[in-house]
């Protein structure tokens, strides 16, 4: 894969995206860019707003504020007809491979559905041919098109989900924890497949996962979320070699490995109470928390060129 992405205009430009459920903000002022052919990794723990971000970007749920510019056009402002036409280029792969397939449809029908919606000129044999080709591309036999999702294993269902997302060669693919529910021996197969398909189509990818090692494997840049906010954004190697935010450090330190000594719990286990309204939301678990952390919420700032972090003590922690 080409590691250096040519700097052009961003395909996707997310600005100050905010999502509230019942008055509670689950996503707060998230901004980032995504370029053609780039893979952006998004890590964070459950409840940090990763999936909400994916769904808000695709307008599968309503954002309360902010903008999502796709090739310069705001997805959140356009009417539903335009949005549906744009969906051709914006696809998603979900976490639960079986749940994301309609149990009443054969996998062939599922993969053909985007064609039925967007390529109306295609006749039945041509469509069947495209589906067969796609099935083989994702490593399934074309003869399997007539079978139902429950006849397949999790890894195979995820291949079907990927085939449905990729059959129209979208310009953006969002992967929401695509390998989290799969066994270790299958995860690599799916990740490699995604990479191959991305290389074929020069697809931009937003890859969401709580598995840092997988994200490290295929991302160019990485976003770290905590409690609905971006707390760190950096090129891959910078993030893994020189993490700045205390939360990112805790995250990296906590990954268990059979060959390394037992990971040391890096942060305080449990916040004593709910995150308070003011200040940094991580401060209750942070071993570096100072007085200023309780007073104001740190903005996401460029600490080193290309490396952003939202921490008051970022510059001290660097040294």
């Amino acid at each position: 894969m080409n590691d250096a992405v040519a700097v052009t205009d961003a395909l996707l430009r997310v600005r100050d995206l905010r999502v509230e459920f019942g008055g509670r903000a689950v996503l707060r002022e998230v901004s980032f860019d995504l370029f053609a052919g780039e893979t952006l990794g998004l890590v964070g723990e459950s409840g940090s707003g990763k999936s909400t971000l994916a769904r808000a970007v695709l307008r599968l749920l309503r954002a309360s504020r902010g903008s999502v510019a796709w090739r310069g056009r705001d997805l959140l402002a356009c009417d539903s007809r335009t949005l549906r036409a744009l969906r051709r280029d914006l696809q998603i792969v979900f976490q639960d491979p079986l749940a994301s397939l309609d149990p009443r449809m054969t996998i062939g029908e599922t993969i053909a559905e985007p064609l039925r919606i967007f390529e109306l000129a295609l006749d039945e044999p041509a469509r069947a041919g495209r589906v067969a080709g796609m099935l083989e591309r994702v490593g399934l036999a074309a003869a399997m098109a007539g079978r139902y999702p429950h006849e397949f294993s999790g890894g195979q269902c995820q291949r079907v989900g990927i085939a449905r997302a990729m059959i129209l060669s979208p310009a953006l693919l969002i992967c929401d924890e695509p390998v989290s529910s799969l066994d270790a021996s299958i995860q690599g197969q799916i990740v490699n497949l995604l990479r191959d398909l991305q290389a074929d189509n020069n697809t931009a990818m937003l890859f969401i996962s709580h598995n840092l090692a997988v994200v490290r494997h295929l991302s160019h840049r990485i976003l770290v979320m905590y409690s609905g906010r971006l707390v760190e954004m950096a090129p891959r190697d910078a993030l893994f070699d020189r993490p700045i935010h205390p939360y990112t450090r805790a995250l990296l330190a906590a990954v268990p490995s059979p060959w390394a000594p037992q990971p040391q719990p890096a942060a305080t286990a449990v916040p004593a109470s709910l995150p308070s309204a003011t200040g940094c939301s991580y401060r209750e678990r942070c071993r570096y928390a100072a007085a200023i952390c309780a007073a104001t919420e740190p903005p996401l700032e460029e600490v080193v060129p290309g490396h952003f972090a939202a921490c008051h003590r970022a510059r001290e922690l660097m040294t």
Binding site: E45, S46, H210, L212, A250, L251, A253, A254, V255, P256, Q262, P263, Q264, P265, A266, A267, A269
Partner: peptide, 11 residues
């Protein structure tokens, strides 16, 4: 559980 919490439970 999340990976940071997991470390605590293992501990």
């Amino acid at each position: 559980l999340d990976v940071t919490v997991q470390a605590h439970i293992i501990d």
